[in-house]
Amino acid sequence: MEQLRIRWFQWAAPQSFYPIAGRLWPLFAALAAVLALVGLYLGFFVAPTDFQQGEGYRIIFVHVPASWMSMIIYLAMAFWAFLGFTFNTRLSGMMTQALAPTGAMFTFLSLWTGALWGKPMWGTWWVWDARLTSELILFFLYMGYIALTSAIDDPRRADRAGGLLALVGAVNVPIIYFSVKWWNTLHQGASVSVTKGSSMAQTMLWAMLLMALAFWAYSIAMALYRVRGIILQRERHARWVQEVVA
């Protein structure tokens, strides 16, 4: 137990995490590509036409996974921020920072694909209902995090300020998730629920889950790739970095 604990802290040292991340990111990137290909094939060539929405529903295969990732990545940032405050490890702040751009991208994609789905089905690109508004707030939280951390020169202070924003902002995530239950929204309820199971056809569900896994693998690959650059930049004065780049 004690040994395992020490191991974890060793891996969390930027110097040992740099090569680990370098070996792992290509695996996750390849996994993401394979999952996306299978998911798109199922989604476009196997899943049947929806009896209500025709072919328009096929936006779901990117909309729902992007929305899930927008929330999951923010929670992951809050998790790393929490570790940073508790154990004061250097890697935590770097991981929080490495995740933010991918999270912001998925939040934007969730809003964009949602607008393109809303227009033909609801007759409007946008409504100020609880689900859409709280997702927009999530986008501003990501932007706020990126702006805040890049405005502070000292990386440790930037980590602490950004970490606080990541932790406090995490309150918004359950609000987004449960907004369709708590308020009367135009947005439909959850397509997949832990308690009730799924309300979709099997192949539609599989295509969506595969795409969600693909986005998940993509996010891990991007975070691992980006954290290597952050490690190099922050540790550039260290001997080991100079051996790596020489």
């Binding site: 025709g54 072919e55 328009g56 936006i59 909309h63 393109l116 789905w117 033909p120």
Partner: peptide, 10 residues
């Protein structure tokens, strides 16, 4: 099925 712009736009 007429939703091309929305689906491919996404």
């Amino acid at each position: 099925g007429g939703y091309g712009l929305y689906v491919w736009g996404s």
